[in-house]
Design a protein around this nucleic acid. Structure first.
Ligand SMILES: [Zn+2]
Ligand SMILES: [Zn+2]
Ligand SMILES: [Zn+2]
Ligand SMILES: [Zn+2]
Lengths: 130, 130
DNA sequence: TAACACAGTGTTATAATATAACATATGTTA
DNA sequence: TAACATATGTTATATTATAACACTGTGTTA
């Protein structure tokens, strides 16, 4: 566990919106939501997003170009991420499964290469959509 | 194993380029490479890419918005994909590891949900870059 | 044969996602 | 204070992807 991170104004605004959302948010939808707070340009959003990802507060869902808050205090700064994604309602859940995480973190390929980081995305139907 | 798929002209052109490449290709770089063959518009590329993905001939590397040929006759039509990605030289290798694939294909989350599909991306340094 | 469905093509236009570049501001440390 | 790092604001542009529509060829079937 690192120091509690002090966020800048823009970083905090963006994080608040992502944490309040009940699903993944796209960069431009975040932008439209914060224009009343004086943030006007995509750069401002993307810079905040980059920082929030770097410190592990949010994750990018690569298959959706969207962003979710980290709900898992155990995922060490985005080095080992896994998500469950509903193909119908777009819901995303962060998976926190210690066994899975250990299995993948220690995975070696056939040449013995170990990896610094992984991202895993599962697709299916969520409980509600099944 | 399904029927051998007959590809259309554009699909074959796009597949040939991706198969000859020694790394992931971006849609617009494919486009620039086939303009001499009479393909002029992004739509033509994206339609071919969609089809090739659907039939499992290529995969999309989500974190790079790029496309690679499938090197793994065992990966059932893109339902279970895993890649090793070099953070330095951008090289991508498709991982074909039966144990890994079985482990993830049979993974249940805490609520017992099983998934239809997954995509896993490992990041690190390739042999050459280490 | 005509009618139809279906997959693919060609084309123009536009939407959505992301970064470059530069000037300014603010906070921390030497 | 000066030097430095980090963040901000802004304009412009690059990159990635889709919408919409007209058209072609091929096979099915009424
Ligand atoms: Zn997390
Ligand atoms: Zn759902
Ligand atoms: Zn494959
Ligand atoms: Zn490399």
């Amino acid at each position: 566990m690192g120091q509690a991170q002090i966020l800048s104004r823009n970083q905090q605004i963006v994080l608040d919106i992502i944490e309040k959302a009940n699903g993944p948010l796209k960069a431009y939808s975040i932008l439209f939501n914060v224009q009343k707070k004086g943030i006007n340009a995509p750069q401002q959003i993307y810079r905040a997003l980059d920082k929030l990802i770097e410190i592990g507060k949010i994750h990018k869902i690569e298959s959706k170009n969207a962003f979710v808050a980290c709900r898992n205090s155990n995922c060490e700064i985005s080095k080992a991420t896994a998500f469950s994604i509903c193909e119908s309602c777009e819901m995303v859940d962060e998976i926190s499964d210690v066994k899975l995480s250990k299995y993948l973190s220690s995975f070696n390929d056939k040449k013995g290469t170990k990896y610094k980081r992984f991202n895993l995305e599962f697709f299916g139907l969520c409980k509600k959509c099944k």
